[in-house]
């Protein structure tokens, strides 16, 4: 069984200006798609549209051939979206944060798995520290732990390399390509230069508007 997110004729209007329009995009197993464009070109808006967070102003979105409007629960069950803000509650520690996200997706998850996921991201010893006392990079790493902890087919990542040190960047890049190689898909925006280790699709938004 395979999966496919298909977008046709997407458009984004902001204050009477088209950021992009008539945008077609398809994502399936093995794809790594990078959305490119200068600041304000609508990269984040496109990711939010594709994640079903914003109402479509034009065009349509299909998940496995079914309109996203109807396939929403199935789509969300296979999606992992990381936005600008890491979504980590400062008052809770790393383990509690991760456990909530797992429960939110209907998984119970094990304490050991969470510890292991945090250790991979270099957070061993920080598991029980309130996230408020962690640095921005460490908070983002907690969010990234969700990538390994809750396997999802489609990753939509908005600037995932922000606030992460060089080793972390290399590890995350590995994770992206491994995910694609294992039959997953990644949609991302980043200002960081990706070292292509497979087919990298580029979507340029700088000339997509008016």
């Amino acid at each position: 069984m395979t999966f496919r997110l298909e977008a046709r004729g997407l458009a984004c209007e902001r204050d009477d200006r088209w950021l992009f329009r008539d945008l077609d995009l398809g994502v399936g197993p093995g794809d790594v798609v990078r959305i490119e464009g200068p600041n304000g070109s609508g990269k984040t808006s496109l990711l939010k549209l594709l994640a079903g967070q914003l109402p479509l102003q034009a065009g349509e979105l299909h998940w496995n051939g079914v309109s996203l409007r109807r396939a929403r629960p199935a789509f969300l069950a296979n999606l992992l979206y990381l936005g600008h803000a890491p979504g980590i509650k400062p008052a809770l520690n790393a383990l509690e944060n991760l456990a909530w996200y797992q429960a939110l997706h209907g998984e119970s998850g094990s304490h050991r798995a969470r510890l292991a996921a945090l250790e991979v991201l270099g957070l061993a010893g920080f598991e029980e520290v309130p996230a408020a006392q962690l640095s921005a990079g460490q908070q983002r790493r907690i969010a990234l732990a969700r990538l390994t902890l809750s396997p999802r087919l489609l990753w939509i990542l908005d600037e995932p390399f922000t606030a992460i040190d060089r080793q972390g960047v290399a590890a995350l890049e590995d994770a992206l390509w491994n995910h694609a190689a294992a039959g997953g898909a990644v949609l991302l925006t980043t200002h960081h230069e990706l070292h292509a280790r497979g087919a990298l699709t580029r979507v340029d938004l700088s000339k997509a508007g008016d």
């Binding site: 069984m1 395979t2 999966f3 496995n64 629960p73 199935a74 969300l76 069950a77 296979n78 456990a99 909530w100 429960a103 939110l104 997706h105 209907g106 998984e107 119970s108 396997p151 087919l153 294992a182 039959g183 997953g184």
Partner: peptide
């Protein structure tokens, strides 16, 4: 990795929240 077709556990999600 297989696509997940259904999500279980509204109960645990509510409890966790």
């Amino acid at each position: 990795m297989q696509p997940r077709t259904s999500v279980a556990g509204l109960g645990p999600a509510l409890l966790a929240t």
